[in-house]
Computed example of a mutant assay.
Amino acid sequence: MSTQENVQTVKDFFAAMGGGDKQRLLALAAEDIEWIIPGEDWPLAGTHRGHAGLADVLQKASEEVETSFPEPPEFVAQGDRVLAIGIATGKIKATNKPFKDDWVFDITVRDGKVTNIREYIDTQALARASEMDASGLA
C-alpha cells in the first residue's frame, strides 16, 4: 500500500474511534493488533492485544476518561509507519481532575490494517489527574 493509503487508513481509524463506530474500527484493525499505552497509576496504561484488547481499552476509555481534541492531529508518514501528532484535553472521571496531553501515536499499517500503536504521551499529567487524595477522594 502507498504511504497516502496508509495515512488514510489511520485517518479512518481515528474517525471510527471518535465516532464510536466499533464495527468500522475492528475492520480497520488487524486481528493481532497491539496497542501500547505507557505509564502507571492511570486507568488506560498497559499493553492491549487483539480485537478484544482494542474493544476493552476503548470501553475503559469511555468509562474512565472524558477527552476532547481541540484541533485535528497532524499526520507524518513514511512507508508503513504513520505518526499522528496532537493535543488532548479532558478529565479523569473518578477524580474530576483535568489534564492536557501532548501526544504522538506511532502507528504501523500493513495491508490496509492497523497492526501496532505505540503512544508517546504525557504520562505524568495523566497520572497526576488520576491521583486520589489520602481519603480516597479526588
Rank of each mutant, 00 (worst) to 15 (best):
V82G: 02
V76A: 14
P43T: 01
L126S: 05
A29F: 03
W42G: 00
R81Q: 13
A129S: 00
I121W: 06
A129M: 02
N6T: 02
I117V: 15
V10K: 03
E31T: 12
F13E: 03
E71C: 10
D21C: 08
Y120E: 04
E63I: 08
F14K: 09
T9G: 07
L26G: 09
K97G: 04
R49H: 13
V7S: 01
E31R: 12
D41L: 11
W42Y: 13
I117G: 07
G53D: 01
K22P: 06
Y120L: 12
G112P: 00
A88P: 06
F13W: 14
D122R: 05
E5V: 11
G112C: 00
V114I: 08
G50P: 05
S62R: 13
T9F: 00
L28Q: 02
E74D: 14
A30M: 07
A129L: 02
V76T: 07
Y120W: 12
L58E: 14
A127F: 02
A125T: 00
A127Y: 01
K97D: 01
T108Y: 09
I33E: 05
I117Q: 07
I85G: 06
D21I: 09
Q78P: 07
I37Y: 04
D122Y: 00
D56H: 14
G79Y: 03
I37L: 14
I117L: 12
T95L: 02
Q78M: 11
A27I: 11
A125R: 04
I37A: 08
N116M: 10
A27K: 12
E64W: 07
F69W: 13
L26V: 04
R49K: 15
L44G: 06
V7L: 04
A138C: 12
